[in-house]
Simulated scan of single mutants.
Amino acid sequence: MRTEAQLFAGVTVFFAVTATGYGWASEDPAGTAVLVVAFLMAALVTFFLTVQYRRRGPRAQDRKDAEVADTAGPLDFFPADSAWPITVAGGACVMALGVVFGVWLLLMGLGVLGLGVFGMVFEHAGRHSPPGSPADGDVDEAR
């Protein structure tokens, strides 16, 4: 993730310089605000990738002496089919209709949407990651 962090650091610097120059040269507060927000979002991604690199160490893709076999192994958990996304979409549709037809329908849609989000969040709550997977938090000791 070191390379990705460096790339996003470049994007962060670009938006910082652009926002400063644009804010100084123009008197457009909306454009300046948009560039500042873009700078902050790029800085957030840069910070996240830097922390992940320091926490997990170099990946096989970050090393020049790495082999293809170094990236082999279990990837992570991939969930099966789920009905919760359809529940969330239905709740959002009923909420949108509630804006048109009345608060009572909006509240019903909010309930269905809340149920769907709750179901999606806690569907796999008791699941454990396979040992050695990236979600497990273990870093390969053989590196």
Rank of each mutant, 00 (worst) to 15 (best):
A19W: 03
A38F: 04
F48V: 15
E27Q: 12
F39S: 06
W24D: 05
A33G: 07
A43P: 05
G31C: 01
A38S: 05
A16C: 11
A33F: 04
V17W: 10
M41F: 09
V13F: 14
S26P: 05
G21P: 04
G23I: 12
F39R: 07
G21D: 11
A42F: 09
P29A: 13
F15A: 10
A33I: 08
A25G: 01
F15V: 10
T12R: 03
T12H: 04
Y22K: 11
E27F: 05
V13N: 01
T32C: 09
A43C: 08
G21L: 15
E27K: 10
V34S: 04
L44V: 12
L40W: 06
G21C: 11
A19I: 10
A19C: 08
A16D: 02
A16Y: 11
V37P: 01
L35A: 01
F15H: 15
A30V: 13
A16P: 03
V45T: 14
G21A: 13
M41C: 11
F15P: 01
L44H: 11
T32D: 03
A30Y: 03
Y22V: 12
A42L: 08
F48E: 15
D28V: 06
A19V: 05
F14G: 07
T20F: 14
G31S: 04
G31N: 09
F14I: 11
W24S: 05
V45D: 02
V17H: 04
E27W: 07
M41G: 03
V45C: 02
P29M: 08
G31K: 08
F14M: 09
A38M: 03
A42G: 02
Y22S: 06
Y22T: 14
Y22W: 15
F48Y: 13
T32I: 05
V45I: 15
W24T: 09
D28E: 10
Y22L: 14
T46G: 02
V36G: 00
V34M: 09
G31M: 07
A25M: 09
T18E: 10
V36Y: 01
T12Q: 03
V45R: 13
F15E: 05
T32Y: 01
G31D: 04
E27Y: 03
A30I: 12
A33W: 02
V45Q: 11
V37L: 14
D28M: 04
S26M: 10
V34I: 11
L35P: 00
A19L: 06
